[in-house]
Design a protein around this nucleic acid. Structure first.
Ligand SMILES: [Zn+2]
Ligand SMILES: [Zn+2]
Ligand SMILES: [Zn+2]
Ligand SMILES: [Zn+2]
Lengths: 169, 169
DNA sequence: CAATGTTCTGTTAGAATGTCACATATAGGG
DNA sequence: CCCTATATGTGACATTCTAACAGAACATTG
């Protein structure tokens, strides 16, 4: 699925799907989706937005744990978050947005195709594109000057359909 | 000119052209190419590579000034460099490479077309592409999902022709 | 189970990148 | 020359990311 989800879509579904896909992938590859890793991924899955590593840590600290009210686990150290993000990225479950120094849950885990990002400057939502046309055009244009691309970074900032709609009103 | 320059090209020419273009642009727009700004730009023009702001500062500190041997001006503070880079970017004389947190002198100042970057992971050189095909394809693919792009970030890491050639030997 | 090696997490410190606020200097226009 | 806008200096600080080492959890083997 490419592009931005509807504003009122069933996001619980996105989230559950994301976690399920993660479990499946780790199972298949013999890696471990530990509680920490799952929690970091879940924080990212909570919104279609990118978060900095420190924001993730803070959010994890804020989440109440256990039944006792007010009980909250301490936020993990930055190092821990970065390590966990490295793992999730190596699994293709999380992407880094270089232009934001921030991270986002992958929308289509399992696929390994090169991906482009659409970043709405207004609402902050991020969507993935998997345009074969873009990938091909870029690869070909580079080839034309003898360059061999192996890590394309394509991040398009602008306005999403919903924010354009709102502006028009 | 798109793509990587020949390894043995006359780089003094690149550098002189870059400075000349900068003077012309600032003249036209009524802005001032002060000694500081000129010096920062010149440091970037010295190579077809990207440099971090702190590297630029250090390089400026290292450059000898005046005739007395060993005399070197102190490196400017980070803030000064960032401010100067902001100016040069606003003039279109310098670009920021988001995926490297680094800056590079524009290869075609004056042009305001959207640009793509080719970054050689091996030799570190960076070339600009001005592929109309890429720009169009990207814009169109975004439009197809209702997204309006206004700041594309396209940075392609890989291997340049010369490094590929060297590897093949 | 016990011993052992591997992977994962905690912790501390520090490097690298970027910004704020305020002081000073400099250029240009009456 | 004075005044104002612009440019630069300076110090502190915020943010992002990494290195190094210690301890915990897990898996494997004898
Ligand atoms: Zn959703
Ligand atoms: Zn939006
Ligand atoms: Zn050159
Ligand atoms: Zn190269």
């Amino acid at each position: 699925m490419s592009g931005f989800p509807a504003l009122n879509h069933d996001h619980g579904h996105c989230r559950a799907d994301g976690l399920a896909a993660a479990e499946k992938l780790c199972e298949e590859r013999g890696t471990r989706l530990t509680p920490l890793r799952r929690q970091v991924l879940d924080v990212l899955l909570a919104q279609h937005r990118a978060m900095g590593a420190y924001d993730i840590a803070q959010e994890m600290g804020a989440q109440e744990t256990g039944v006792a009210e007010g009980s909250s686990k301490r936020a993990p150290a930055a190092m821990t978050v970065y390590r966990t993000l490295d793992f999730l990225m190596s699994m293709g479950l999380v992407h880094k947005l270089e232009s934001l120094n921030a991270f986002i849950a992958c929308a289509e885990p399992g696929e390994t195709h090169p991906v482009q990002f659409l970043i709405c400057r207004q609402c902050g939502r991020v969507a993935e594109l998997e345009s074969e046309a873009i990938t091909e055009t870029v690869t070909r244009a580079a080839q034309k000057v003898g360059f061999e691309v192996d890590a394309p970074v394509i991040e398009l900032t602008g306005r999403c359909p919903d924010c354009r709609q709102a502006a028009r009103a």
